[in-house]
Simulated assay, not measured.
Amino acid sequence: MAKGSYLKKLFQSFNEGNTEEFKAIAKNIIDDERKKNHYQLADELQRIINSTSLKQLRKAESNFNNNLLHLLPKDKDSNFNLVDVKTSKILLDDLILDEFVSTLLKDFIREYEGAEILESYGLKPRNRYLFCGPPGCGKTVTAEAIAGELNIPILYTRFDSIVSSYLGETASNLRKIFDFIEKGTWILFFDEFDAISKQRDSVDEHGELKRVVNTFLQLLDNYNGDSIIIAATNHQNLLDQAVWRRFDEVIMFDKPKESQITELLRKNLKRYPCSEINFVELSKGLVGYAHADIERIILNTIRTAIIENDSYVDDNKIRKQMDIYRERAKIYNKIND
Rank of each mutant, 00 (worst) to 15 (best):
T140F: 06
R158M: 01
K139F: 03
E149K: 08
T103C: 13
T170R: 12
L105P: 05
I162L: 07
E113R: 15
E116D: 11
E149C: 07
K76G: 01
E99S: 14
S161W: 06
Y129D: 04
Y166M: 09
R126S: 07
K76Q: 05
L155T: 11
D93Y: 09
N81K: 05
K176P: 00
I90G: 11
G168E: 04
T140P: 05
D94Q: 04
P153H: 08
I162A: 09
Y166N: 14
G136A: 09
R126Y: 09
S88T: 03
L82Y: 00
R158T: 02
D98C: 09
T142A: 06
K86Y: 14
L167Y: 13
L105H: 08
R158F: 03
D98P: 03
L130D: 12
S164A: 03
K176V: 03
F159G: 02
T142R: 14
L92W: 05
E99M: 06
Y121M: 09
P125N: 03
N81M: 06
E99C: 00
P125H: 00
T140N: 07
L105K: 11
G168N: 07
D93I: 02
Y156W: 15
S102Q: 11
T170L: 02
L118N: 10
E111R: 07
N151G: 10
G122V: 03
G148E: 02
S165I: 12
K76H: 05
T142E: 14
G138V: 02
R110H: 10
I96N: 06
L72G: 06
S164E: 05
R158K: 14
P135V: 03
I177W: 07
L150C: 04
S165Q: 15
L155A: 02
L174W: 12
L91N: 15
N79I: 13
S172H: 11
E99V: 08
L72F: 00
A145I: 12
L72N: 11
G133T: 08
C137M: 01
E99H: 13
K74M: 02
L155Y: 14
S88D: 00
V83F: 04
Y129T: 10
L91C: 12
A145V: 10
L104N: 12
L150I: 03
L91Q: 13
K176S: 08
E149D: 05
I109D: 07
L118P: 07
V101T: 14
I96D: 03
I152K: 14
F178I: 11
E99L: 13
R128Y: 08
K74A: 01
D93H: 10
Y112L: 00
N127F: 02
L167D: 08
V83L: 00
S165T: 14
I117E: 15
E111Q: 07
L150D: 03
I117V: 14
D93E: 14
A171I: 03
K76A: 03
N151Q: 09
T170I: 08
E169W: 11
I96V: 15
E149W: 02
G122I: 00
